[in-house]
Write a protein that binds this DNA or RNA. Structure first.
Length: 426
DNA sequence: ACGCCTTTGAAGCTA
DNA sequence: TAGCTTCAAAGGCGT
């Protein structure tokens, strides 16, 4: 009778159990203590393979099953699935789901056909092929490739809540490339204004990751950023002077080697770039054909910081997704804040600008200003810009008669846009 | 793929 | 110097 052994998959960075088949005939009472009962195991085994008793190499077959099952879990994030599943589901229900997954997996790929027929050579060939596949996966680090390489994989490729773009090496389960969370500005995270408002996690890591046992790159100690003296970049410890490092590392690179989200390619929006960055790595050569100067984004102002923080809350409360509508609500809420509440964000924004100046002393907002009119821009860009300008002017004229927003309201009542309160809209 | 929408505030530009 | 313009973020939507 096979036995389940539970042990830590420490090399995988998770605390989940690792289950593997042992040689048959090694029966004892430990199984009663295990999460799986003997009967469960029998079910699991039978669902994996209806192996003939006449198999000439039973040990080899068992070993094969062990390898495959181990690979199932290691390479396909089943450890994660199990870790989550045992927390979210009852043990019994989870075991049923797990058995079903294994059953479908095995039957989709016919992994056990060769074993069943005693064609070990063929199966060895599969193992090699499978190993090549796994190696290929670890090279690509691209969850999307499963879909094309193995039609059955969408069923098994569960979204990884720890890794935004599924950039994970199956062989090690270590995060190799990470991406900025959408809810965090690169500089915002460096401002420990409030734990409630601003997560202290590194900007390029999702919040979840800091709470899980997944291995991740060591975050920098950034607590001293705002205690820097004037012109403090030069006095930063070597590990913190990532302005100069980023120049050496190239566009968009943090000194850690992680792409810095404040520096983005000039073409397209940042989020567009991020989404494609890991999902379609094979398109990278296309981008390389057009080497362009990286764009350093403007520091966020107080309202932008407020929006970043409150957007998720508004989305949850109002079940809205359109940013335009959300921004309208946030605009009103912003003006509903007290001066003290707003002062937090103004101070935060001031520190952002200060840090931005220290990081990019030669940067100017002009760098990103009217790109279409910059030197070297084509006539078409200039023409487009002219149209855009006209549209905006027309829109501005309309806005003076529509008090739908605080800004419009101020315009209508002749108030200063920068300093006056928009009483009528509140 | 890219621009628009929509908000406020900072900064650049222009007359 | 006042007033205008652009750009930061966000994501659905239209072209």
């Amino acid at each position: 009778m096979p036995q389940l052994s539970s042990g830590g998959g420490d090399d995988l960075g998770a605390n989940d159990e690792m289950i593997s088949f042992k040689d048959e005939g090694d029966q004892d009472e430990k199984i009663q203590e295990n999460a799986f009962t003997e009967r469960d195991l029998a079910d699991l085994k039978s669902s994996l393979v209806n192996e003939s008793e006449t198999n000439q190499s039973p040990n080899a077959a068992v070993g094969t099953r062990e390898i495959i099952l181990m690979r199932c879990w290691q390479g396909r994030k089943w450890l994660l699935l199990r870790g989550l599943g045992t927390k979210l589901l009852s043990p019994g229900l989870f075991k049923v789901i797990l058995r079903l997954l294994i059953y479908v997996y095995c039957h989709c790929f016919g992994h056990f056909q060769a074993v069943r027929r005693g064609q070990q050579n063929e199966h060895r060939g599969y193992q090699e092929k499978h190993r090549e596949h796994l190696d290929g996966v670890s090279k690509h680090q691209d969850g999307g490739m499963y879909k094309t390489a193995y039609p059955g994989y969408p069923f098994l490729m569960l979204p990884d809540p720890y890794i935004p773009s599924g950039s994970v090496s199956p062989s090690s389960n270590k995060v190799s490339v990470v991406q900025q969370s959408h809810g965090m500005h690169p500089l915002t995270s460096l401002l420990p204004y409030s734990n409630d408002h601003f997560n202290p996690s590194p900007p390029h890591l999702p919040t979840d990751m800091s709470q899980k046992g997944i291995h991740r790159p060591q975050s920098q100690d950034i607590s001293g950023f705002y205690s820097l003296p004037q012109g403090g970049v030069g006095q930063m410890p070597p590990s913190m002077g990532w302005f100069s490092h980023s120049l050496m590392l190239g566009p968009g690179m943090h000194s850690t080697g992680i792409p810095h989200p404040a520096i983005v390619p000039p073409s397209g929006k940042q989020d567009h770039h991020d989404r494609n960055m890991y999902a379609k790595p094979h398109q990278e050569p296309k981008r390389e054909k057009e080497p362009k100067k990286p764009v350093i984004k403007k520091p966020l102002n107080a309202f932008m910081l407020y929006m970043k923080e409150m957007r998720a809350k508004v989305i949850a409360e109002c079940t809205l997704k359109e940013s335009a509508a959300i921004n309208q609500i946030l605009g009103r809420r912003w003006h509903a804040l007290t001066r003290e509440e707003q002062a937090k964000y103004y101070e935060l924004a001031r520190k952002e600008r200060q840090l931005h100046m220290q990081l990019y002393p030669s940067w100017s907002a002009r760098d990103n200003y009217e790109a279409g009119l910059r030197e070297g821009a084509g006539e078409k860009n200039k023409a487009d810009w002219g149209k855009k300008k006209r549209r905006k002017r027309e829109k501005q004229q309309d806005s003076t008669t529509d008090p739908g927003s605080p800004k419009k309201c101020r315009a209508r009542f002749g108030l200063n846009q920068q300093t006056d309160w928009c009483g009528p809209c509140r």
